[in-house]
């Protein structure tokens, strides 16, 4: 069965630069998050924690 693979993960893995950077994140167990840049300049953050939703200031 296909395992979990979200839309962003698919996009990153289809991009050669993105995939390399995501691959490098595997061995960086001391890092909580990393920025991944795709060939087209698009940037994503890969994180071990769910991002907190931004609260709207009153």
């Amino acid at each position: 069965m296909k395992a979990l693979m979200g839309k962003i993960a698919k996009e990153v893995r289809q991009d050669s630069k993105g995939r390399e950077e995501l691959r490098a994140f595997i061995t960086e167990s001391n890092k909580d998050s990393a920025t991944i840049t795709l060939k087209n300049g698009k940037k994503y953050i890969v994180s071990r924690h769910k991002p907190k939703t931004r609260e709207v200031a009153a």
């Binding site: 962003i8 920025t35 698009k42 940037k43 953050i45 890969v46 994180s47 071990r48």
Partner: peptide, 12 residues
């Protein structure tokens, strides 16, 4: 098993 989250950078 480690679930990884991905999201766009908030500010360029």
């Amino acid at each position: 098993i480690e679930y990884l989250y991905m999201y766009e950078t908030p500010f360029e």
